[in-house]
Simulated scan of single mutants.
Amino acid sequence: MDDTTPAWASLIREVPDFPSPGILFRDMMPLLADRAGFAAMLADLAAPWREAGIQAVAGVESRGFILGAALARELDAGFVPLRKPGKLPGELFEESYALEYGSDRLQVQANAMRPGERVLLVDDVLATGGTLAAAARLLQRLGVQLAGGAVLMELEALGGRARWPAQAPLLALLKH
């Protein structure tokens, strides 16, 4: 850890060969369990957005729910979950996307946000960018204003930032 790395980052555990051989999984659960570390990380995540007029935070299933809901509370905003198929009732918008190992879909309730609302998109990790880009497209289909995106960690070698909409800022607290 260098001088610019926040102290709370030491609470993220590296787990080799999970969920499959060759993958280095970054486990944020010890960070979430540490009251002071979690609070400090949330303060860092919220800081750039406090004066941005955020009205809702959209979190990507599932770890994005944890960060997104807590961040929404920090920003005095509402929280909207972006879910995998089959989890939400009512009229839905859906966006498909490719993963390193297949494909998936995200859904949001059609009436979850009002057109023009300023929304911050949150997830835990930016890897190849497929999930976050699909989530951004899904929000844009609702007619909301994508104020930006925030992730706990960015895996820079995978180039996911290139898939992010250029017109919206993207914050990554940690870069690996």
Score class of each variant (00 low, 15 high):
2 D>A: 09
3 D>P: 04
8 W>Q: 02
9 A>E: 00
9 A>W: 00
10 S>V: 15
15 V>L: 13
22 G>P: 14
22 G>L: 05
25 F>M: 10
25 F>K: 10
26 R>A: 10
27 D>S: 07
28 M>V: 14
28 M>T: 11
29 M>D: 13
29 M>A: 13
29 M>G: 13
30 P>W: 01
30 P>G: 08
31 L>F: 03
32 L>D: 13
33 A>I: 07
33 A>H: 12
33 A>W: 15
34 D>H: 10
35 R>Y: 12
35 R>C: 09
36 A>Y: 07
37 G>K: 02
38 F>S: 13
41 M>D: 02
41 M>V: 15
42 L>P: 05
43 A>S: 12
46 A>Q: 01
48 P>G: 03
48 P>C: 02
48 P>W: 03
49 W>G: 00
51 E>L: 14
52 A>W: 14
53 G>N: 09
53 G>P: 06
53 G>V: 01
53 G>T: 01
55 Q>L: 10
56 A>P: 04
59 G>T: 00
59 G>A: 04
59 G>L: 04
61 E>N: 08
62 S>P: 11
62 S>L: 07
65 F>A: 06
65 F>G: 03
65 F>H: 07
67 L>T: 10
74 E>C: 07
75 L>H: 03
75 L>I: 02
75 L>G: 02
76 D>F: 10
78 G>F: 05
79 F>Q: 01
80 V>T: 09
80 V>G: 13
81 P>L: 04
81 P>Q: 07
84 K>A: 10
87 K>F: 06
87 K>H: 04
89 P>C: 08
91 E>P: 15
91 E>M: 13
91 E>Q: 14
91 E>L: 15
95 E>I: 05
95 E>N: 07
95 E>M: 09
96 S>H: 15
99 L>M: 10
101 Y>Q: 10
103 S>Y: 08
105 R>D: 09
109 Q>E: 10
109 Q>A: 07
110 A>K: 02
110 A>Y: 03
111 N>V: 10
111 N>P: 12
113 M>Y: 01
113 M>F: 04
115 P>H: 06
115 P>M: 05
116 G>P: 11
116 G>L: 12
117 E>L: 12
117 E>H: 09
118 R>L: 04
120 L>N: 00
121 L>A: 04
122 V>N: 01
124 D>M: 00
128 T>F: 08
128 T>I: 02
128 T>E: 05
128 T>S: 04
129 G>E: 09
129 G>F: 14
132 L>Q: 13
132 L>H: 10
134 A>S: 01
134 A>P: 07
135 A>F: 06
136 A>F: 11
136 A>V: 14
138 L>D: 11
139 L>M: 07
139 L>H: 03
140 Q>M: 11
141 R>V: 01
142 L>A: 11
142 L>I: 07
143 G>H: 13
143 G>I: 14
144 V>I: 03
144 V>K: 06
145 Q>Y: 15
147 A>V: 05
148 G>P: 09
149 G>N: 03
151 V>F: 10
152 L>S: 05
153 M>Q: 08
154 E>I: 11
157 A>P: 09
158 L>R: 05
159 G>L: 02
159 G>Y: 05
160 G>L: 11
160 G>A: 08
163 R>C: 05
164 W>T: 15
165 P>Y: 13
167 Q>Y: 04
168 A>S: 12
169 P>C: 08
169 P>H: 13
172 A>R: 14
173 L>A: 07
173 L>K: 01
174 L>V: 00
175 K>T: 15
175 K>A: 11
176 H>R: 15
